[in-house]
Amino acid sequence: MNPVRLLIVLVAAVSAIGLAVVMQRALGGKPAVATAIAAPASSRPMTQVLVAKRDLTIGTRLTGEDVTWQAWPTEAVNAAFITNGAALPKPEGAAKAKAAVANAASDMIGGVDPAKAVEGAIVRDPILTGEPITPRKIVRGGDGGYLSVVLSPGKRAMSVPVTSETAVGGFILPGDRVDVLQTREASGSSDGGSDKVLIAETILQNVRVLALDQSTAAEKDAKSIVAATATIEVAPADAEALTRAKATGPVTLALRAYTDLGGPSGAVGRVEHKVHEEAVIRINRGGQTTNIPVRP
């Protein structure tokens, strides 16, 4: 080989090695080859997916603090995930996936901000930290199965007819605590006749209101709801007592203070209301008996 040509080859080889060393140092000691391989991976299209920020147990009512956005490989996005539609891929197949995701999210959230749409929803199945939020895992007011998730274990949901008069003018809202009072008539004797006396007594105390008509939550800034029915949470035995009360007379709801949340709840011991009856004293004189009524 020509000495001049050989010298040129050697100088080029040394220069290439020196350039590789300089590039490696500039990249923090990482091999240039590894960086070149990792570069395509970092440019993969990503989509923001709504996930749980912490472990969520059954019955948890979601707030904005429970969820967050997390970057997710777009090709791995499931149609049931809630996304913000950002950084979607260009290939035709991925475009179809984008449309499916957008449609699923739109159906669930109704066109509002996804993060806000899940606020107030109830967790139906456990959701782990970092797990995507899906419609199957949560239930919102108005959805099927909502009350069965909201109910406390072992409790029952029962509805009672109400009016603005029997529901504190509509100021009772879902989540409030109430007493259930029954009004009925009782008969008694007075002055040899028969009188009807109106009796009011508390049947249930400190029970939770689950819904008013089909509203499971008051609208924003709403202070009252005028409804025809109120659905309350009761124990099985209390449900029987409430059924009997509804059959024998109208019921009224009495709103309790927020501080009564931890107080006794459920059926109240029935108080026997005795109508004023006359006592009779018999006086026997000379073989004649006289009855003299005496009021207690």
Rank of each mutant, 00 (worst) to 15 (best):
L151V: 02
V149M: 12
L181M: 10
G175K: 12
S159W: 08
I172N: 04
T183F: 11
A200G: 10
Y146I: 11
S194I: 12
P153M: 00
L151Y: 05
V180L: 01
G169R: 03
M158P: 13
I172A: 02
S164N: 07
V150M: 15
T166K: 05
Y146D: 11
V180H: 02
E165K: 03
S148C: 05
G193P: 06
G193M: 12
V149R: 12
L198E: 07
G175L: 05
E165W: 06
T166N: 01
Y146C: 07
S187E: 12
G154T: 01
D176M: 10
G175Y: 08
S187V: 10
G169Q: 06
L181F: 11
I172V: 08
V149D: 14
A200N: 10
V160N: 00
D191V: 08
A200Y: 10
T202W: 01
V180S: 03
G169V: 00
S159T: 14
G175A: 07
T166E: 04
T183D: 10
G169P: 02
S187M: 11
V162A: 08
K196W: 06
T163F: 06
S190R: 15
L151R: 04
L181R: 06
T166V: 05
I172R: 04
V197C: 12
M158S: 12
A167Y: 00
A167F: 03
D176R: 04
P174E: 01
E201L: 02
R184S: 08
R184H: 10
D176C: 08
G154S: 01
G175F: 09
M158I: 09
V160D: 01
G188K: 12
V150R: 09
V178R: 07
V168K: 05
V160R: 02
Q182A: 05
T202H: 07
G175C: 14
T166M: 03
L151C: 00
G188L: 15
V160L: 01
G193Q: 05
S189Q: 14
S164M: 06
T183M: 11
P174S: 00
I199M: 04
G170C: 01
T202F: 06
V149H: 14
Y146S: 09
P153E: 00
V197K: 09
S152L: 08
Y146N: 13
E165R: 04
V160M: 04
L173T: 04
S187L: 14
I199W: 02
G169C: 03
E185H: 09
D195Q: 12
M158L: 15
L147Y: 11
S190Q: 07
A167H: 04
I172L: 02
T202I: 06
S194V: 10
P161M: 07
S189M: 13
S190W: 12
R156V: 00
V180G: 03
P153K: 01
A157I: 02
Y146L: 07
S152Y: 08
V160G: 03
V160T: 05
P161R: 03
L181N: 09
K196D: 12
V178F: 14
E165A: 08
V162E: 04
S187K: 11
E185R: 11
R156H: 07
A157Y: 03
L147K: 09
